[in-house]
Amino acid sequence: MNYTLHQLHVFVRIAQNQSVTRAAEELNLTQPAVSIQLKNFQDQFDIPLTEVISRRIYLTDFGREVAQAAETILQAAQAINHKTLAYKGLLYGKLTLSVVSTGKYVMPYFLSGFMQQHAGIELAIDVTNRQKVVDSFANNEVDFALVSILPQHLHVNHLKLMPNKLYLLGSGQPDTAPNGNEPKLLETLPLIFREAGSGTRSMMEKFIDDHQLVVRKRLELTSNEAVKQALLAGLGYSIMPLIGLKNELLTDELRIVPLDGLPRQTTWMLIWHKDKQLSPVAKAYLTYLEANKELIIQHHFDWYERF
């Protein structure tokens, strides 16, 4: 037999997900590439590893035993890598984060310098909506989470990173600016919402509720990127964070609509559970952030202070 560690890794992900498609997504590979690796792995055994029933893939009894053995082999290989790095005096291990979807415009800049300093660290980031971030955090699945609103029902420590400012935004096309700056202006505009569970949506709904407004929802979209494209197309208006809109704001493709009571401001925060025993990697990352966050903001987010 001549299987590779890569084939073992692919097979374990298929076993965990019972899906070639989901395994491909997690591995950042195409579905055909994963299918080819599975076929090449299967070709080395006379006994089937998987079976397909009603278009769903299942492990055979033999496949389950192979998957368990593969996990053991991969863990041993990782241990060898870690020992090699330890002998070199390097920091090693895994850093796991769950990040609210808008945070993808923030978090990479607070990670890149740290990762460049420590080549032995493996990074895993899950970018999703706020509810799923809170759930993964509550289930102790990650070291840290990036949020802009603290979860009230959890006991957390936090490190503030930078402000999160939300304005009413619309297309920068000429002659499209609405008149007035009273909150009731929202009742006359076609509004674009994020999906339920989004932190951006909760902030927008709180502003509407605080001013007892009756508004018209034109669209509901599942990402700030999708909302941005809808705004650029002139489909409506939305209260959303400025982060991620740098180019559109500086080139006047999008326009801030002045509205009393805006901006609403929260703070991007890295949170971790008060009772969690942080790994050496996680502790080193906190130390890095405390020493470097102001320089990171100055270097990458100087444009943000203009608004």
Rank of each mutant, 00 (worst) to 15 (best):
I80Q: 07
N81M: 08
H82S: 12
H82I: 03
H82G: 07
K83P: 02
K83V: 11
T84Q: 15
L85D: 06
K88V: 03
K88Q: 15
K88I: 04
K88M: 14
L90C: 05
Y92C: 09
G93W: 05
G93M: 09
K94W: 12
K94L: 08
K94H: 12
L95I: 03
L95C: 04
L95T: 01
T96N: 09
T96G: 04
T96R: 07
L97E: 06
L97A: 07
L97H: 05
L97W: 03
S98C: 13
S98E: 05
S98P: 02
V99A: 01
V99I: 11
V99R: 00
V99Y: 01
V100Y: 05
T102A: 14
T102L: 13
G103C: 01
G103K: 00
K104D: 12
K104L: 12
K104N: 14
V106S: 02
V106Y: 02
P108C: 06
P108M: 04
Y109N: 15
F110D: 02
F110S: 01
L111Q: 04
L111F: 03
L111R: 04
L111P: 02
S112K: 13
S112C: 09
G113Q: 02
G113M: 03
G113N: 05
F114K: 05
F114E: 01
M115H: 00
M115W: 00
M115S: 00
Q116H: 14
Q116W: 06
Q116T: 14
Q116M: 11
Q117N: 11
H118G: 02
H118W: 01
H118Q: 04
A119R: 11
A119S: 15
A119V: 06
A119P: 04
G120P: 02
G120R: 00
I121V: 15
I121T: 09
E122L: 12
E122A: 13
I125M: 14
D126E: 14
D126K: 15
D126M: 13
V127I: 15
T128W: 04
T128H: 07
N129K: 12
R130P: 01
R130C: 11
R130W: 06
R130S: 06
R130D: 07
Q131E: 13
Q131W: 08
Q131F: 13
Q131C: 08
K132P: 03
V133M: 02
V134T: 12
V134G: 09
V134P: 11
V134K: 09
D135F: 09
D135V: 06
S136Y: 10
F137P: 00
F137V: 07
A138I: 10
A138H: 07
N140K: 12
N140R: 10
E141K: 15
D143P: 08
D143Q: 06
A145S: 15
L146Q: 01
L146Y: 02
L146G: 00
V147E: 00
V147N: 00
V147H: 00
P151R: 02
P151V: 05
P151H: 05
Q152G: 05
Q152H: 05
Q152E: 12
Q152L: 10
H153E: 15
L154G: 14
L154E: 15
L154A: 13
L154R: 11
H155V: 08
H155S: 11
H155I: 07
H155P: 01
H155M: 09
V156E: 14
H158A: 13
L159D: 06
K160H: 08
K160N: 12
L161A: 11
L161E: 15
L161F: 12
M162V: 01
M162G: 00
P163N: 08
N164E: 10
N164D: 10
K165I: 10
L166S: 10
L166M: 11
L166K: 09
